[in-house]
Design a protein around this nucleic acid. Structure first.
Lengths: 180, 180
DNA sequence: AGGACCTATGCTACAAGGTGCATAGGTGGT
DNA sequence: ACCACCTATGCACCTTGTAGCATAGGTCCT
């Protein structure tokens, strides 16, 4: 799986606690990955067990103690090895497609309602992405530092994907309107 | 999950064996869903257990016996109820995004190689989709029977998505070329 | 004659992902 | 005073997905 590698990537950039990593994933949810805090804590424990990260327990006042994780040399090697493997196919599973597939059994009217709802969701997600772009990535790409370019490109994929989805939805709504 | 509902959708259209359902999924793999035969058999057993489908064992000559599954009234109701629920968000998890996120740790050169490989894969998938479109969906949409329109639209989503991905990849390759 | 592949179902085991619950003090608002 | 939320970690359980193996006759090619 890849959550493991995403976590390695994060602690490879800077020391971090499970809580911080989870928050980061929540904030960019849907934009490149998502994970619950349990998944993150579980993975961190497994990575520590495997010697790919290590942690220091840090006492805090007024807050629970925390574990700050750092990548190890072995972790860096493991990450670089994974990086150079041929890319895994992306997964997309869209339950709406099942509804298209089986709309005859239930009714076109209900499918139209489903599509309209899904379109709202995708439009809202696109608006979020565009707001992030306008706020944090306003300057021309070639003026960004390299690390920022790379993150920006992941955001661009989200934007491109959502725009494409919305174009498809318009096409589909036209076809469904012409039905029956 | 939705595999359950996809299987209900299939046996709602016509009686089918686990083997046939698996083959159908294999043939349209990536285009709207994918599943291994073990998942299908396991789900069918669970659906039968829950009374949403029933099966008849059919003896065959020269071939193993098979179980032909049919949807029950309860299964139809369960499917219709699920259909009318608000659509679940589609999931897309692309490990390539992790590589973008962490390319600084490994090197831009390796990222370029990864992107080039991924672009080949996506281009091949698009070509497959377009070949299916040219072969089976050559006539104008409004002349298709309704069930065919619906399936065609799921194919259209695949095509739209892959084209969008390739546009993004071109944009990204330009940016990466300008790096360093 | 032998090998590869097709039809057809299934078990076991494991990996990955997700839900719910628990703990526990601190902060900020009404 | 109370409620809601934040920081911070974790266990137990359940579902979903993947991999390997097993069975067993039939077809098709070389």
């Amino acid at each position: 799986m890849s959550l493991k590698h995403l976590i390695l990537a994060v602690v490879g950039t800077r020391p971090a606690t499970g809580y911080e990593i989870t928050k980061e994933f929540d904030e960019v949810a849907g934009f490149y990955w998502r994970a619950t805090h349990q998944q993150v804590y579980r993975e961190l424990a497994a990575l520590a067990e495997a010697g790919l990260v290590r942690f220091k327990e840090v006492e805090q006042q007024g807050k629970p103690d925390k574990k700050v994780y750092t990548i190890t040399a072995k972790g860096r090697r493991a990450f670089a090895d994974w990086f150079r493997e041929p890319p895994e196919a992306p997964r997309h599973a869209d339950p709406l497609m099942i509804k298209f597939f089986a709309a005859e059994l239930v009714g076109i009217e209900d499918l139209r309602a489903q599509l309209a709802l899904a379109r709202e969701r995708h439009a809202a997600l696109l608006a979020t992405f565009e707001a992030i772009e306008a706020k944090y990535y306003a300057e021309p790409v070639d003026e960004m530092p390299r690390w920022k370019k790379l993150i920006y490109l992941t955001l661009r994929l989200g934007i491109t994907r959502e725009r494409a989805w919305l174009r498809w939805a318009e096409e589909s709504e036209r076809v469904l309107r012409a039905c029956e």
